[in-house]
Simulated scan of single mutants.
Amino acid sequence: MGVLFVTSKSLGGSGKHITALAEGLRPWVRCELAYFPSGVAQDSELESPFSRVHHFPRKPSFDPGAIAADVAFTARLLAQGGYEAVHTHTSLGGLIGRVAARVCRAPVQVIHTLHAYGADEFTPVPQKWVYWAVEKALDRMTNRYVSPSHYTREYGRRTHVIDAAKARVIHNSLPLQPPSERASQRRRLRGELGLAEDETLFLFCGRFEKQKGVDVLLEAAARVAPPARFRLVLCGTGELQPQLMQQAHRLGLGGRVLWAGWQPDVRPYYAAADVFVMPSRWETFGLVFLEAMNYGLPILSTRTQAVPEVVEDGVCGLLSANEDANQLAANMYSLAMRADLREELGANGRRQLARFSYDEFLRSHLALYRECRVVLA
């Protein structure tokens, strides 16, 4: 059977999700991809599992003329036939793919994965109501939803932005392998970074955007009191990096913050770290939490949206209120001072990974696609 994936980008959690899904389904599903290449290394990672890739001929834009052209491009692909389903991802990809399926009247089922809502509680009014109206209209063009968390489906039901009866919860997952050579990687990277054995290494991996709360993390790091000894390593890039570097300088963090940039392979950083920290303002899942659990790292994050569904507070991590730098600092201090607590939370996290089985993730999607084929038959 054939499925056309439509998305707007290769970056972030949605890109990882799509890559993991298409890679695992290759033996049973012919997966093709239509997206906007970003001109970065992640493009090749995203494209690798697909049998065929179609590039939109322009940069992503919400300009009505550009959207109309992208819809026409996608409609032509669908009209060629050979697809039982179009599976859309991200807000722009969901708009283009769902409208294209309606326009071309191709005999395909439309699935949309709810990576996030444009109209969530953090979107300002009146922009929020515009997004709500658009998503409500697109709901009529959608046969099924994949919700990565119970939170995401419940939010859609509570706000009436989608028909929640069409939404199936399929927790995100990744094809994770038990870490190998962790001890040697840990020694090597900590040596390169100049870390003493008694220094706690807090690790952040993600985009430098408002969502990820790096500004709150820097404020918290500046408030961690002695005698706690720590370093904070930030792996990533993003539009806010200049402001964040200025903030770190203003807070006097100096050499305690190490800017590692975007890393094509973050495994050595997970191996070297003692704690993973990402105080997101909003998060409908958070695949990096699974990566951190795989390395036995305790997690510091926030009680926002779906995070408590993935990171159980007091079991595999410590959660603070959204934007609460004081509580985050207290949690950082606790984990910096207590190796026994780090070990306990990290071991629990490894066990928690079983709740997010990659095999079940693939089986559930495959069952969904096969249901689409039955409907069309």
Results as ranks from 00 to 15, higher is better:
Ala347Met: 07
Arg342Trp: 02
Gly255Ser: 15
Gly206Phe: 10
Thr19Met: 01
Phe56Thr: 05
Gln42Glu: 15
Leu297Lys: 06
Arg168Thr: 14
Phe276Lys: 05
Leu232Cys: 07
Val86Met: 03
Leu21Asp: 01
Pro242Arg: 10
Pro268Glu: 09
Pro298Ser: 07
Trp262Tyr: 15
Glu32Asp: 15
Ala137Ile: 15
Leu193His: 10
Pro60Tyr: 13
Gly254Val: 08
Pro308Ser: 12
Pro226Thr: 08
Ser364Thr: 09
Val71Gln: 01
Arg182Val: 14
Phe285Ala: 11
Gly24Asn: 02
Ile111Gln: 00
Val307Leu: 13
Asp215Asn: 14
Tyr35Cys: 02
Ser14Gly: 03
Ser301Cys: 08
Leu92Cys: 07
Val110Thr: 15
Arg187Phe: 08
Leu362Ala: 14
Leu353Met: 08
Phe230Cys: 04
Asn143Thr: 14
Arg190Thr: 11
Ala41Met: 04
Trp28Gly: 00
Thr284Ile: 05
Ser51Ala: 13
Arg190Gly: 01
Leu366Thr: 01
Leu33Ser: 07
Ser180Arg: 14
Ala20Met: 03
Arg30Gln: 01
Lys59His: 01
Met141Ile: 03
Ser48Cys: 04
Ala66Arg: 02
Pro49Ala: 12
Gly24Asp: 00
Tyr295Trp: 13
Thr7Trp: 00
Thr142Cys: 02
Asn294Tyr: 02
Tyr83Lys: 03
Lys166Trp: 08
Gly346Lys: 13
Cys104Arg: 05
Leu176Lys: 08
Lys16Cys: 05
Arg102Asn: 03
Arg144Val: 09
Lys128Thr: 01
Asp359Val: 12
Phe62Pro: 02
Thr19Ile: 00
Ile18Asp: 00
Gly191Asp: 10
Arg157Glu: 07
Ala116Gln: 00
Thr302Asn: 06
Gly213Met: 11
Glu323Ile: 09
Ala325Val: 06
Pro60Lys: 11
Arg168Phe: 02
Glu219Arg: 13
Thr304Lys: 01
Met337Pro: 03
Ala221Met: 09
Gly252Arg: 09
Leu218Ala: 01
Val110Pro: 02
Pro126Cys: 12
Gly93Phe: 06
Val71Asn: 03
Thr113Phe: 02
Cys205His: 06
Phe50Cys: 00
